[in-house]
């Protein structure tokens, strides 16, 4: 479980998040919806302790990580998987090495088990034949799947997805969404999906928080979103895609 308690964050003089409180439960998929530049990626980075808030607390599985040092945060982060908005694949490593990175690095699994899991993931993501390629020679959708596989392969109990479907064609994005919803059925995982595409929310999320101008203007189950009265939510429901 991840909890944000009254979190505020500024970049220089610009206030990005104003007193935000948010709870992410295990075994459920939560969407964070909001226009571009509102601070969605920032929230995910806060949850991992990659950046620190100016005030407020971030609590992961009962531990307050707000003022933890970088070294003590590593253990907390290893429980979570993160899919970065720009994938952030290690570009000097092959696809297999990218996928196996966490298993070798942190779980110190025997090489045989690493290879087994990597092969399984390659098949799952439909990347057969690309095992020894570098990320640069893959298409955007393929890289996305590698990034997702890299986060899923070590079976974390919470995965943070930053815009998993942005910039993908409808077929690829459908594949990725069904992959995400299968997580819940197969592995009993919790997940956070950051997105600005409202269809994604209806497709996979159990509950949704809407972030607008630094504040959470809605935080409830996905069905209730239809009944929300906030003008911003009304406008996105009618347009379906968020443009500012």
């Amino acid at each position: 479980m991840i909890e944000l308690r009254k979190v505020s964050l500024k970049y220089g003089d610009r206030e990005i998040l104003k007193n935000i409180s948010l709870t992410i439960k295990d075994n459920a998929i939560k969407a964070i919806l909001g226009p571009s530049g509102v601070g969605k990626s920032t929230i995910l980075k806060l949850m991992l302790g990659l950046i620190k808030p100016n005030s407020g607390q971030i609590i992961v599985d009962g531990t307050d990580i707000t003022s933890m040092t970088e070294t003590s945060l590593y253990a907390i982060r290893r429980k979570m998987g993160m899919v970065f908005q720009g994938n952030a694949l290690f570009d000097s490593m092959t696809i297999s090495e990218n996928l196996g990175f966490f298993l070798r690095e942190n779980m110190k699994l025997p090489e045989k088990e690493v290879n087994r899991r990597v092969t399984e993931q390659i098949q799952f993501a439909g990347l057969e034949g690309y095992e020894e390629q570098l990320p640069e020679s893959l298409s955007g959708g393929m890289r996305r799947r590698v990034a997702i596989g890299r986060a899923m392969i070590f079976k974390p109990h919470m995965i943070l997805f930053d815009e998993p479907t942005a910039g993908l064609d409808p077929v690829s994005s459908k594949k990725i969404l069904s992959l995400i919803s299968s997580l819940r059925n197969d592995n009993n995982l919790g997940a956070v999906i950051v997105t600005h595409i409202i269809d994604d929310v209806f497709n996979v999320a159990d509950s949704v928080a809407v972030l607008y101008k630094g504040e959470i203007i809605f935080d409830d189950s996905t069905e209730k979103l239809h009944k929300a009265t906030h003008p911003f939510i009304r406008s996105i429901l009618s347009d379906k895609i968020l443009e500012l």
């Binding site: 991992l48 990659l50 590593y74 290893r78 720009g86 952030a88 570009d91 690095e105 942190n106």
Partner: peptide, 17 residues
């Protein structure tokens, strides 16, 4: 280049120093 493409953050996110 690793820093601006968030690869260094990815290492941190995976719990690697």
């Amino acid at each position: 280049a690793m820093q601006i493409s968030e690869q260094i953050d990815a290492l941190r996110a995976f719990g690697t120093d």
